[in-house]
Design a binder for these strands. Structure first.
Lengths: 403, 403
DNA sequence: GGGCTTCCGCCGACCTCCGAACAAAGTCCG
DNA sequence: CGGACTTTGTTCGGAGGTCGGCGGAAGCCC
């Protein structure tokens, strides 16, 4: 009789799979690749040759000998393959130019109002990317993909924002088409919380199959990574936890028209308003953080209370989704000691023991850069995806290297 | 520039993939298969021959001619391949013997106490399966897989219950091993709500990628189907929504030790207790249903109120998970008119418009049979999975047909 | 320096899949 | 009623990719 065991390891075959292994660092020599994939050494050599010829891989210095001929190390050929990770917020724009190994080449950050509409904003983004390419000494053609996180729901397949509440003029705007004539690059647009979740999972929790990333800023949102892939839901609106009802706050009206929404009682904007009422002027989540850091006890109390309310909602989601890791990010996470205390307290009290037993709850370690980094990773992974690489290799066109 | 488009159709190759198409009815002749897969007719013939030789497929009568030679129809050879779908509840046992096309051959249903422990219960199950096989005139060796739903969390990979609250003696009991000497069949054990969700998705919502199945019986649980696959979470406890807190009921203590759990205010057991207090004796969810059907206005009021409370929790989950379909099942769904009214009302009031716009909320259409059918489908899909079929075909052993 | 080990390219053997040609089994039409 | 046509399914040689052995390359150990 056969037992229901875990998944069988599928034997990867194509050039794209080989590149994935090199990229992940799982195998850096031809022999390694043969061992890991189970393919014959001769087959691997053939594949690697094709990747080298297309300019995707190159040999570096020989490695350490283990008693015999030293293996030749293989690396991604990063010089001619870069991506841009774009983080568009309500009032800022951060861009990171990264090579396909994930290394950040150059960065920029400007104030910018997303409410000025897509043409204005994207023209700005285009100019910044061009400048970053120049600064990094890369050719325009080296830009292979653009990842972008925006503060609202997006139909990921088409890259069009879907009724975003704080992005006037962007509804259904075809963002990828804007870049069509400007770069020969794939453009991927997603919700900012989604790319933050992806980035955090890839950076710090690669082995965790079930991760939630909770962003606590002006509003509150959540990115969901299930078995390594983003969960976007049927309409791409999954993770919108800011308007979940919390008990005992029916007096708090929310901009969405309902009352007692999590965001209306525990979001940065709500906290700022309440602090102002208490005589401590604050306008934004950043002001709240500043008050906490200056030792204001009212601010501290409110943040901890916000943590409890967020924890109440997360306790429900822990029972439902059963995550392995919860990451807390966003502006308010800068005072994570106080925020996390409230969150942890409530989750461990209200969730099932089986679900919390191996649950890890941590602050984001990428901080302010989370969205731009995550957007870059989204772009890199798309570009290096086996299917895409196979297409490039089979197309017979040189991928970047001028002959 | 390349746009971020939907997934490319991968071209299926192996014998297992061919069988999957025949099984799904997507292609019933060799020519069809060639067109659908893109493989050459000669290759398809080769594959089909192998499947016929192994006893997995057979030719039936010729089909309609479309002006040329009439195609020979291919069907799954169901005679020598059957599975059992087992539904173990707290107080009952239902088993359906199904062939691998999904047709139910024979059924049985007995009262049974799961609290009597695994040896007693599984011995009973074994005897029932043997009798069903005899009734259906099938050989013992024809049983290829057993799917089983149990009322508690399970570590699916090993088939061991994981600290189930209402299954004393079952914790960590290796269910598949029990059947090891008795049948040459794979044994798959899962939470009952999970198999119900799977069955409903396959039966009625094949095209829906994001489905929640909510079972409202004695307790309340939820099965999650994401992109066609069950979401079990990190510890296999995902979907345990019965202990999510609902607002305004802090007086209601729950058997889990907390208060205001959904199950403690809206579960069948809780409703029965409150009806008893009101002077209408009721012990189980079934009694509650009977009272509603007899026109008892108190019972009706309580059920509708339960619907609102369940709806409150589901409203949160709709925002978080963004499902396409919510199916309501379990004993209380027999009065679904009243239950659904409350659920729908609350979800549409409290969830985001983007998430509810294309949301469908319906009662289960498989009713009491949901778990047994779902367990059978789980078993069939495992047995017909391409990897498994390839293994059978390549092993060179005849799969069931005595030579 | 010679044996040993490991790495890597080359080449014949093998396997799978393809496509063309052919056989089979029906329809259509004069 | 018979031949042309259409569609289905099989046979067979060839193309392409993978395997594994062989030998050369390049280091370590004694």
């Amino acid at each position: 009789m056969t037992f229901s065991s875990g998944e069988e390891r599928t034997v990867p075959g194509s050039p794209g799979d080989v590149l994935t292994l090199i990229s992940a660092g799982s195998a850096t020599t031809r022999s390694d690749l043969a061992r890991v994939t189970g393919l014959a050494r001769s087959t691997i050599s053939q594949r690697v040759d094709a990747l080298i010829e297309r300019g995707l891989v190159r040999e570096t210095e020989s490695g350490e000998s283990t008693g015999g001929r030293p293996p030749r190390q293989l690396r991604l050929h990063t010089a001619d393959h870069v991506v841009a990770g774009v983080d568009l917020g309500a009032t800022h724009c951060r861009i990171k130019l990264m090579d396909i190994s994930g290394a950040v080449l150059t960065t920029c950050e400007d104030p910018m109002l997303i409410a000025e509409g897509p043409e204005t904003v994207l023209t700005h983004v285009d100019a910044r990317i061009a400048r970053l390419l120049t600064e990094a000494g890369r050719d325009r053609g080296a830009l292979k993909a653009i990842g972008m996180g925006v503060p609202g729901p997006v139909e990921f397949a088409t890259g069009r924002p879907n009724n975003p509440p704080i992005m006037p003029g962007w509804n259904d705007y075809p963002v990828p088409e804007f870049f069509a004539g400007r770069y020969d690059a794939t453009v991927l647009v997603d919700n900012d919380v989604n790319v933050m979740a992806l980035g955090e999972q890839r950076d710090a929790f690669e082995n965790s199959g079930y991760l939630l990333f909770v962003k606590v800023g002006t509003g509150i949102g959540c990115g969901i990574v299930t078995e390594g892939r983003l969960h976007r839901g049927a309409q791409g609106s999954a993770g919108d936890i800011g308007h979940i009802r919390v008990s005992g706050h029916d007096e708090a009206g929310c901009r969405c028209g309902n009352s007692a929404c999590l965001e209306a009682v525990a979001g940065g904007a709500a906290l700022a308003r309440r602090l102002t009422d208490l005589g401590f002027p604050a306008e934004s989540a950043g002001d709240v953080v500043a008050l906490v850091q200056s030792g204001n006890t009212q601010a501290l109390r409110l943040v901890r209370e916000a943590g409890r309310l967020i924890g109440e909602v997360l306790a429900s989601l822990v029972n439902f989704y059963n995550p392995e890791v919860i990451v807390i990010g966003g502006a308010l996470a800068r005072v994570h000691d106080h925020l996390l205390a409230g969150i942890r307290e409530t989750i461990y009290r209200r969730s099932l023991p089986l679900a919390t037993h191996h649950l890890t709850i941590v602050p984001s370690h990428t901080g302010e850069d989370a969205a731009a980094l995550g957007a870059g990773i989204l772009a890199i992974e798309h570009y290096l995806a086996p299917d895409n690489i196979n297409r490039i290799v089979n197309a017979g066109e040189s991928a970047g290297v001028s002959a």
